[in-house]
Nucleic acid binder design. Structure first.
Lengths: 123, 123
DNA sequence: CCGCATCCAATTTGATACTG
DNA sequence: CAGTATCAAATTGGATGCGG
């Protein structure tokens, strides 16, 4: 670790851009947010099934970090069996335009050979 | 590897959103792009000095990937000592609005305690 | 100066089992 | 059902040296 945290001490100070990267960073956070946003509310298991390839451990740790960043809200219903629902917070919703722009950009630039969904209503 | 690539075969097919994540993904690519965009053109060494904490190995591998994705352009001048300049391609420039929005979002939501630059022309 | 290759350490991830 | 803990496996990261 030879980076910023050395310069800025224990409370690691960040530039605004780095803060956003911290909140959204990693391989899965944006995909998780995207899924939650699409469905408004999702239970843990539904979320897991909707994101191909993510593992139990990774999903739960990333959900926890997103919650700590104030991006998603976790509501636990004390039933048996347990039920937990995730949704975006207002703060989280303010990030959606960025994710949508990323999606639009991908639509424009994704090479056809790699496209997985190209036959939806092409007439 | 229990993910998409299994489902989609060797040419790993992607959704548009995943494509964007692939292009921009990782800890450093967006920061690299951001630096290049700010200066229009940067030599390798300048770039390295401008990004705190990045190592030689990581910077060069990420630059290569960005080049392969068509986001940055690499121009090599056959001098001794060697000189290489990096700049954004037109495709790369189309991503800048997204990076700028991320920066703006960070400005709004970065908690004051973590802010590293908060005294620039506050009157 | 730039960037690839190597070697080894550190971090992340996956599979599995366990708790409330 | 949701989440944590553990441990091995895989991936990434840093330091260094070589060659164009």
């Amino acid at each position: 670790m030879t980076n910023d945290s050395e310069l800025s001490g224990k409370h690691n100070l960040l530039t605004p851009f780095d803060y956003t990267l911290t909140v959204l960073g990693g391989k899965w956070k944006m995909k998780i947010m995207y899924q939650i946003a699409c469905q408004k509310v999702l239970r843990y298991g539904e979320l897991k099934r909707s994101i191909l390839g993510i593992t139990h451990k990774v999903l739960s740790s990333q959900l926890k970090e997103l919650e700590e960043s104030g991006i998603i809200k976790r509501v636990e219903y004390s039933q048996t069996p347990l039920k937990v629902e995730y949704s975006l917070t207002p703060k989280g919703k303010t990030l959606m335009p960025i994710l949508e722009d990323m999606c639009k950009w991908g639509l424009q630039y994704l090479p056809d050979e790699q496209r997985i969904i190209n036959n939806i209503r092409n007439e």
